[in-house]
Every structure is written in C-alpha cells, then in structure tokens.
Amino acid sequence: MTKQKYNGHYICHVNQSKTERTRAYIIEMTAPIFNKQGYAGTSITDLTAATKLTSGSIYGNFANKEEVALAALDYNISCFMKALSSATAKAKTPKDKLFGYIKAFSSSGSMRFHDGGCPIQNALCDADDTMEPLRQRAAEGLKAWKQELAAIVDQGILEGIFKADTKSDQIALHVIALCEFAMSTYSATKSLKQTDEILDMAIEVAKAIIV
C-alpha cells in the first residue's frame, strides 16, 4: 500500500500496479493545477514541476495533456462531492442536510477555498465551446450534484418535512445556482459578506419548502 498527500489528506492506493499508482499520482498532483489555472493555462512544465516527473513519464501514462486534464477533472469533482458529503455527514434529517449543503459555502463553511473554486464551474468556463469532452465531464458532475440534492428534497417530502408539492429538481437547481454564484462572487470580490448575502437567498429557498 502506498500513500500520497493531497489537499491535506492522505490518499491510499491499495493493490494497484506500478502503472496504476503512477497514473493516480499524476492525477492527484496535477488536479489542483488544472483547477486553478485551467486547461489552456496549464503547461507541461507545470505538470512536471507538480509531479517531479519528466514529460516522457507523464506522456508514457497518458496520451496527451487533454487526457490528463479529463482525469484530473474527474478527480476534482469527486473530491468536491466528497467534501460536500463530509460537510453534511452529521446531519440527521433531510432539512439539516439541505441547510448543511448551503452553509458549507458560507464564510464559516468548508467549501470556500476548495482548490481554486468549484471544479464544475471552472471546467465549464474553461471548455468555452472549444473542448467538448471537458464540457461533457463537467455537465455529468453538475447532473450528479443536482441528483444528490434532489434526492435529499425527495426524502424530506416523503418524511413530511417538506411540502408535498415541492418540485425537487427545481429546488436543487435553484440552490446550486446560488451556491455557484456565491463562489463566483467571492472569487471576484473576496467579500465574505457578499458571499453570505447570496447564500442567505438560498437559505430562503430552503425555508420556503418547509411544512
């Protein structure tokens, strides 16, 4: 078993071949670079500096930079979703989970400085109609996020916590849109006050569906 440290946490690779461990290491080390600098803004020099490997070693494991970027995006989205799940792990009710999701992006939450911001939002901006595979992966991540939130709302409806006529998909999209905008606002202004004001709107959306 080997361990690599990423984003303050140790990631273990169990029963992997040397090739699989090397690929995983490259992905883990380059994922923050792609998320902060984007596909176009990340060079092979950045990748070799982050991994301490030669360009030949990197391209011996990946066909090209695009393949590394796509794998890094998958990894970043996975880390992002795990961080969100962790932020709501102690929530006991669907209501607490929904509010926990929103509060995770607040000034007191855990998502504000997540390695350059939301990887889904970053990738969608980065693709900009010029890199379709990147856009597709980001869209899949957005869909998974929406489904997870909608499932929480649906469970709340079943338990009689949320109003029976609540449209869970719409609530999920509304909350996601406000959380994403809050992150964008913070990136642009560095104002925690404005970020929290936007998230207060998401809290009001959640409060409106409570029975």
Rank of each mutant, 00 (worst) to 15 (best):
Met1Ala: 14
Gly8Lys: 04
His9Phe: 14
His9Ile: 14
His9Ser: 09
His9Leu: 10
Val14Ile: 15
Val14Pro: 00
Asn15Cys: 09
Asn15Gln: 07
Gln16Cys: 09
Ser17Cys: 03
Lys18Gly: 12
Thr19Pro: 01
Ala24Asp: 06
Tyr25Phe: 15
Ile26Gln: 01
Ile27Asn: 00
Ala31Trp: 02
Ala31Thr: 13
Ala31Tyr: 03
Phe34Tyr: 02
Phe34Ala: 03
Thr42Ile: 10
Thr42His: 07
Ser43Gln: 05
Thr45Trp: 06
Leu47Ile: 14
Leu47Phe: 07
Ala49Leu: 07
Lys52Gly: 04
Leu53Glu: 08
Ser55Glu: 11
Ile58His: 01
Ile58Cys: 03
Tyr59Phe: 15
Phe62Val: 08
Lys65His: 05
Ala72Pro: 01
Leu73Asn: 03
Ile77Ser: 07
Ile77Cys: 04
Ser78Phe: 13
Ala83Thr: 14
Leu84Met: 14
Ser85Val: 00
Ser85Thr: 08
Ser86Gln: 11
Ala91Met: 10
Thr93Trp: 00
Lys97Asp: 00
Lys97Tyr: 00
Ile102Arg: 07
Ile102Ala: 10
Ile102Asn: 03
Ala104Val: 09
Ser106Met: 05
Ser106Cys: 11
Ser107Lys: 09
Arg112Ala: 06
His114Phe: 15
Cys118Val: 06
Cys118Asp: 10
Ile120Arg: 03
Ala123Ser: 09
Ala123Pro: 08
Leu124Ala: 05
Cys125Asn: 14
Asp129Phe: 12
Asp129Cys: 07
Met131Cys: 12
Glu132Ser: 11
Glu132Trp: 15
Leu134Val: 12
Ala139Val: 15
Lys143Pro: 01
Ala144Val: 03
Trp145Asn: 06
Ala151Tyr: 00
Asp154Glu: 12
Gly156Asp: 02
Ile157Trp: 02
Leu158Met: 09
Leu158His: 12
Ile161Phe: 02
Lys163Tyr: 12
Lys163His: 10
Asp165Glu: 15
Gln170Glu: 13
Ile171Lys: 05
Leu178Tyr: 14
Cys179Asn: 11
Cys179Asp: 06
Cys179Gln: 08
Cys179Ala: 13
Cys179Lys: 03
Cys179Arg: 00
Glu180Ser: 08
Glu180Asn: 10
Phe181His: 08
Met183Ala: 11
Met183Ser: 14
Ser187Arg: 15
Ser187His: 15
Ser191Trp: 14
Asp200Ile: 04
Met201Phe: 10
Ala202Phe: 00
